[in-house]
Design a protein around this nucleic acid. Structure first.
Length: 342
DNA sequence: TATGCGTGGAT
DNA sequence: TATCCAAGCAT
């Protein structure tokens, strides 16, 4: 089975029997086409994010905003609140910008190039939407495809340098019929059989064609360049009370936790930055949080504000929605509430 | 090309 | 506990 032309049919036959059932997906062989809006929304949510984490967010978003026109009319703050907890918040900002551009244009572009020009849609997502929603013969290369192809062809070059080579190999395998199902099949295979740690080669529909398996090196592929060490950082967060209200602010649109709702804080050299107002600050303890590129220890200070706060807005405690906060700020809020209770 | 950007689950 | 990693994008 060393003939490349055998790969796609074998994989598609497997997909026809084993395709994962997902809320944004149309089963293989279905008579209806996948809705480009739902494909786009799911693909953006799935960027560097697991299916398990995305599922409920996707269902909530599509219930609130069934079409791209509905989403385009949504309030920025509500979209940010609904995205809270999912991470990579630039995606939410770009999601709205993209929805409004599409709503203005009337419909999603069909081609990879057209999609690629929209905010938050890059090389992967543009190809995925074009292939899955519009059946265009585009090659979709995500982390799963990189792993499957690296193993199929025993590519030893480490990522990310190997990316062009893996893309070229994946392109060679992409069939002209059912390219969307092929893309989803490659990703399903990577997610369920050709997994990073312990690939289930015995169940793999491509095992006879797999060079890495033949060489006994599947688990070692793909190789990856070493990542830089994660530094430790520290900062401060202020839970500022006034009566039955607490001070919240919207973080700057760009940068860490951009555009999210937050307790006033200073994440890097907080000692240089003043608190949001005058108060007798009590030290509630430390919250630890892991970001992609650093570990954070955030000291939580609470106090009753004396006078008008220097920034942010006061929100009645009963209106504080924990779910509208990003993960880090949920931890801060939980610590503060535990303190209130005592 | 390298870096910044979240979060939670698996091992 | 530490590390890896998951359907990447913007700059």
């Amino acid at each position: 089975m060393r003939d490349d032309r055998v790969i796609a049919p074998a994989l598609l036959a497997w997909y026809d029997r084993h395709a994962r059932v997902l809320p944004w997906r149309v089963p293989p062989g279905a008579s209806v086409r996948a809705d480009p809006y739902r494909v786009w929304l799911s693909e953006v949510m799935l960027q560097q994010t697991t299916v398990a984490a995305v599922r409920d967010y996707f269902l909530r978003f599509t219930a609130l905003w069934p079409t791209v026109q509905d989403l385009a009319r949504a309030d920025d703050a509500q979209v940010m609140a609904e995205w809270a907890g999912l991470g990579y918040y630039a995606r939410a900002r770009n999601l709205l910008a993209c929805a409004r551009a599409v709503a203005t244009a009337g419909e999603f572009p069909v081609t990879r190039e057209g999609l690629r020009a929209l905010p938050g849609i890059g090389a992967y997502t543009s190809a995925a939407i074009s292939a899955i929603a519009y059946d265009q013969p585009e090659t979709v290369v995500d982390g799963n495809v990189e792993r499957v192809v690296a193993r199929l062809f025993a590519v030893a070059t480490p990522l990310p340098a190997a990316k062009p080579e893996l893309t070229a190999l994946a392109t060679r395998l992409t069939p002209s019929t059912r390219p969307g199902d092929f893309a989803q099949a490659m990703m399903d295979l990577g997610a369920t059989i050709c997994t990073p740690r312990n690939p289930a080669c015995g169940f793999c529909p491509l095992n006879e064609a797999c060079e890495a398996r033949a060489q006994g090196i599947a688990t070692a592929l793909p190789r990856k360049s070493p990542k830089p060490a994660k530094p430790d950082r520290s900062g401060l967060a202020w839970v500022a009370l006034q009566g039955d209200a607490v001070l919240l602010e919207e973080r700057p649109a760009k940068g860490l936790l951009g555009g999210t709702l937050a307790f006033p804080s200073a994440l890097w050299d907080g000692r240089d930055l003043p608190p949001p107002g005058a108060a007798d600050w009590r030290d509630l303890g430390e919250v630890r949080h892991v970001f992609t590129h650093f570990n954070l220890s955030l000291r939580v200070l609470a106090g009753d504000l004396d006078g008008t706060p220097g920034r942010g807005h006061l929100v009645p405690l009963r209106h504080i929605d924990r779910n509208a906060l990003p993960g880090l700020m949920r931890k801060v809020w939980d610590m503060a509430r535990a303190d209130f209770a005592t």
